[in-house]
Design a protein around this nucleic acid. Structure first.
Lengths: 186, 186
DNA sequence: GTCTATACTTTGATAGAC
DNA sequence: GTCTATCAAAGTATAGAC
């Protein structure tokens, strides 16, 4: 019995492992252990080894956010897109049981390897949110502050809910942020 | 030329390394490389190896926060203690160039090793802040929400400022949070 | 594409001389 | 207390059979 993979099937599996163990904590043996995929297959799809695997995961995560979050924020009805962001983010991060890989990579020296990708992910999130807020009637300064506060607040909520091992904290934090946004967009 | 250390001298050095490299990324050889302290000395002070080193660092960080942040929040003038928290936190985290070790450990599987210490650090921070907010005139519900929002906001600001490699983001985020607190305490 | 075997490096940890 | 030497285990990566 042997399973044949495509690269696209492997990336989401790798993503979960990098999320849980971090870049340094993720070893090829633990990947094999959790997925059943041998080193031969891994190096066939990712000749650049672990670094290429993490890069592919980052690109995949980025593409998901671009499609599900950023584009609606830039193009759709502003209030609807912001409301959708809160529910999509809550689902994506599984109410805080899943962390943000990009944020986690930003904290330690892994950042050095992927600084461009990491910076880009957050810049584009903030800018897309800024765009929606302005279309919803915020001044530019107000929108910039609120966009940064929203994105940082989500990251902080992930840290806190993991630290307290309490998913209610995450959902409640998102709720507080959403109310704050609503009050400013009035 | 050989330097003789005490355990208390080593812990802050270890703290910086764990902060920059994370738990898994910190190897004994990199500790020696950065500090000049050999394995012999390290195992003399920390017979339990890397895990004991990280534990000692966590205890040291916790003690600093207890003394510099939590106790004033619980016992001193509420408004002054909150104001002092913002400046002390900004200094401690070096305007976002330094990360929160406890928050970083919370994100990956390192959490499993130190879940009690990590949870305690954040619980006590939130509770101390809650106490100050209530003494400053907040209702309990309002204070709970705001305390969580403040602590999560600091953690998120650290992630964001590292991701964007922009320390202005951190200071500005703290400023926004401080204003929010002021407006509620009126 | 996947597997097994293997090369080579680095890891955490220990022992013993000084 | 610190040093050097050394260990077994785990790390990344490669080669070649199938």
């Amino acid at each position: 019995m042997k399973t044949v993979y495509e690269r696209a099937d492997i990336v989401p599996l790798l993503a979960e492992i990098f999320r849980e163990l971090g870049y340094e904590g993720t070893s090829l043996s633990r990947i094999t252990e959790r997925t059943g995929i041998g080193k031969g297959s891994l190096y066939h799809f990712f000749p650049g080894g672990k670094e290429e695997m993490a890069g592919a995961v980052l690109a995949d995560v980025d593409a998901w956010f671009e499609h599900a979050i950023y584009q609606p924020l830039r193009k759709d009805d502003a209030r609807e897109a912001i409301a959708a962001m809160w529910t999509n983010v809550n689902d994506y991060f599984r109410s805080g049981r899943r962390i943000c890989l990009v944020g986690a990579f930003a904290l330690d020296e892994t950042r050095e390897r992927f600084s461009a990708e990491i910076g880009d992910y957050f810049i584009r999130w903030i800018d897309a949110l800024l765009s929606a807020l302005m279309r919803a009637g915020c001044s530019e300064g107000e929108a910039q502050t609120l966009a940064e506060e929203g994105v940082a607040g989500i990251q902080g909520a992930l840290v806190l809910s993991r630290a307290l091992d309490d998913r209610v904290v995450f959902t409640r934090s998102l709720d507080t942020l959403a109310k704050r946004f609503d009050s400013v967009m009035r």
